[in-house]
Write a protein that binds this DNA or RNA. Structure first.
Lengths: 223, 223
DNA sequence: AATAATTATGAAGAATTTATGCAGATTCTC
DNA sequence: GAGAATCTGCATAAATTCTTCATAATTATT
C-alpha cells in the first residue's frame, strides 16, 4: 500500500485529491503546512509527495528543496500556471513531475501511478512473499527452484497483488494500476490474464490455488 | 566509495549536484576554479570529474585537455547548450560523456553511474560468466575452446548484457550505454545487431538461444 | 430447487512486438 | 580513392501477447 503526502493550503483541494487516490488503495496524509510536511517525510514512510507551489507559510519550491536534502521520495509539483521556466526550475530542484491546475482525475491518477511505478521499479528489484519471489529485473516469478517467465500484463497484475498480500483488488483497480489509467480495455480481460497466469503456475507445479484466489463478487487477491 | 570532483563557477550548481550524488554514497569535492581542479586531479584520488564548460578563470575544454595529458579519469562535460558540434569537440578532446543543462537528477545520476561502471569495467580486461568469457582487449567472445570476433557495437551490447546477467535491458538502455547518450540511432537498429550476434553465435555452434534471450515487450537479456 | 449473478474456460482474431532480409550509408583500411 | 567491413534503416514476415466474446461452470439469492 502506498502512502501519499498531499501538501496544499487549501483544504478543499486536499479533500478532492484524496477522493481521487483513495479508490486506488492509497493512503493519504493531508497537510496544509510546508514545514510540517517536511517533518512528516522525515518521520513517516511516504511513497510520494504531491506538493502545491503556492502556500502561505512556505514556498513549495523551498519545501521540495529541503526534502531533497535528505530524501529521494518521488515529488510531483502542482501549480496554477503551466510555465516552461517553472518546469525547468522544478526539475532542477529535484521534482520528478509537474501537474498544472486545473487537472482532471485521469491526469492526476495516471501521473501518480506512472511515477510510483518508475520509482518502485528503480529501487525494489525483487519482491518476496513467503516462498514466492517476483523478480522485477527479469519479469519472472520464482518459487523455490522453479521460475516462470511472465508477460508484461501478467507481471503487473502479480506485482500489484503480491505487493499487498491478502488485499482484494477489484478488476477495475487492477486495470487502473496494471494498465494505464486511460485504458478502455474491457474489464473481463483481467479474467483472461488471471486464467493464463493460473495455467502457467499450474504447469510449473506452483501451488496456485492456495495463492491466487478469487474473491467472489469483488475481484482477486494473493495470499 | 567513489570520489567525484565537481567543477563549476556557480556555487549553487555545485550544491545542487552534490545533493544529487550524496544519496548514492559518493564523496564530492567542489571546486570553482579550473586551475585548482587540475591540481586536485593530480594530487587526490578522483574517480570521476563533472566539468562545466563555461568558467571564469579557464575554459572547460582547456581544463579537460590538460587533465588528459596526465590522467584517464572519466570526465563528464556540462554545458548550457546542447550542440552537436560541442559534443564532437568534447569527445575529441577526451571527455567521456556530455550533459546539457538543464538536466534532471535522474539523468545526471544515470550517466554518472553508467560512466563509473564502464570505467571500472575497463580495468578488468576479461569478463566471465559461466562458460563464456568476453575478452575486452581483443573484442572477442570465448566459449570453451572456440572464439568469435565481435564488431564494436556487438561487443558493447554483449558487454552490457553479460556484466549483469539475467537483468533485462530495454533497447533504449542499450542505446544509451553501448552507443552515446545523445545518439539518434533508430531503436530498431539494436535488433539488427542482436540478429548479427545470434548468427555469429550460431555459426560458431555456441548455445545461443539459451543465453541471449528476448524478453517480449521489454528487451534483451543474457543468462 | 429454480433463478440470477458472477466467474472460468476456450477459441478466434486483433494488436503489438520481434525476426529477418536487404539495400544504402558510413567508416575504416590499404 | 577503392574496396571491405560495419552500421543503420526500413519493409515485411513471423511470433507473441492481448482482447473480446460465447458458453460452461460455479456461487449466491429467493
Amino acid at each position: 500500500m502506498y502512502t501519499i503526502l498531499l501538501v496544499d493550503d487549501e483544504e478543499r483541494m486536499l479533500d478532492l485529491v484524496e477522493l481521487f487516490l483513495m479508490p486506488l488503495g492509497m493512503k493519504c496524509i493531508k497537510e496544509t503546512s510546508g514545514k510540517k510536511a517536511i517533518e512528516i517525510v522525515e518521520k513517516e514512510k511516504v511513497n510520494l509527495v504531491l506538493l502545491d507551489i503556492m502556500m502561505s507559510d512556505m514556498d513549495g519550491w523551498e519545501v521540495c528543496k529541503e526534502i531533497r536534502e535528505f530524501s529521494n521520495v518521488p515529488i510531483i509539483m502542482l501549480t496554477a500556471r503551466s510555465d516552461k521556466a517553472d518546469l525547468a526550475k522544478g526539475l532542477n530542484i529535484g521534482a520528478d513531475d509537474y501537474i498544472s491546475k486545473p487537472f482532471d482525475e485521469r491526469e492526476l491518477v495516471a501521473r501518480v501511478n506512472a511515477l510510483l511505478r518508475r520509482s518502485s521499479d528503480l529501487d525494489k528489484s525483487k519482491i518476496t512473499y513467503l516462498d514466492y519471489t517476483l523478480d522485477c529485473d527479469t519479469y519472472s516469478l520464482h518459487y523455490h527452484e522453479s521460475t516462470i517467465q511472465l508477460t508484461l500484463k501478467e507481471f503487473y497484475i502479480i506485482k500489484t497483488l503480491i505487493s499487498r498480500p491478502s488485499k482484494t483488488y477489484t478488476r477495475e483497480e487492477l486495470l487502473n494500476i496494471a494498465w494505464d489509467y486511460e485504458t478502455e480495455t474491457d474489464i473481463r480481460t483481467v479474467d483472461s490474464h488471471i486464467r493464463n497466469l493460473r495455467e502457467k503456475l499450474r504447469k510449473a507445479n506452483f501451488p496456485t490455488d492456495e495463492f491466487l484466489k478469487t474473491v467472489w463478487g469483488i475481484g482477486y487477491k494473493w495470499n
